[in-house]
Design a protein around this nucleic acid. Structure first.
Lengths: 142, 142
DNA sequence: ATACACATTATAATAATTCTAAACTATTGA
DNA sequence: TCAATAGTTTAGAATTATTATAATGTGTAT
């Protein structure tokens, strides 16, 4: 059984047609042990490297957004110039290394569950995200 | 004593020349009781309204970034298309109302201090930010 | 196999931000 | 007080990231 099969099913399940490009993107994104954090640019580069044929930039954007909408990907915004996507869509938190520009999962055991004593009235909490910015200990008067 | 005086001093203190534009921006940003959350677009609009003469968009960007670098403003990134600045640069957390697109401070008493049991080795924590996305209770299957 | 709805593509368009170079202004010190 | 100068503002051009367009291609149900 080829490893694509589950991706084809997975895509069908959420109502996305399993096109060549989408299946390829699934392979790149989800065929790995650990969760994966990436920018659009990094993803485009990886796909180009792993595919013989070219993929359109528009397709990558469309597909990433389709995956996001269907709950396969989650966006993590760092600042106005840097936005990542995360293959781990469950509720979890991140370190952002300002030296290497890497996003790193915070282990569930290393942070207490956030609990709010009050919420905005009439509103429902959709998500709670913690971002911990870290940088090298010496060069910190940038 | 005109209310500008302290802004002129404040600007001098951090090594920024107190130009007309910067003093005006200080007035708009810091001459208020509560902390202020704004996008660049909103700020440009407010300044234009309060000033007789026009201000260049480039100046607003430059000045906001100068203020940010000097610690007068903090950026809060919501997603790749929406970035706010906050006049409250002390460590605190936010609600983001996905209906009204408003950023709202979380009262210090309503959230426990985040404490991490582990940090990335060799790294120093620069900031810890919590973002709580909320939306109207009914229309939540968007 | 066919038809239809949906996807992909290259390219154009848009939007947000930064760059550029000329004109301007605050500061310094003679 | 008055240059000199260093930093600032400006309009507009350039750049970058993202989205729209419209033609072509493809997956799926019949």
């Amino acid at each position: 059984m080829p490893k694509n099969c589950n991706f084809i099913e997975k895509l069908r399940d959420v109502g996305l047609r399993p096109t060549k490009q989408r299946v390829k993107m699934c392979e790149v994104l989800f065929n790995r042990e650990k969760t994966f954090h990436f920018t659009i640019n990094e993803l485009v580069k990886m796909i180009s490297e792993q595919m013989n044929q070219k993929i359109s930039l528009a397709t990558v954007y469309n597909t990433v957004h389709a995956f996001e909408k269907k709950g396969y990907l989650k966006e993590i915004s760092i600042d106005s110039h840097r936005s990542y996507f995360d293959t781990n869509t469950s509720s979890h938190h991140h370190f952002f290394d300002e030296d290497t520009h890497q996003l790193i999962d915070i282990d569930k055991n290393d942070i207490d569950t956030i609990n709010l004593k009050k919420n905005i009235s009439g509103k429902k909490i959709n998500s709670i995200e913690v971002l911990v910015r870290v940088a090298s200990d010496n060069q910190n008067q940038k």
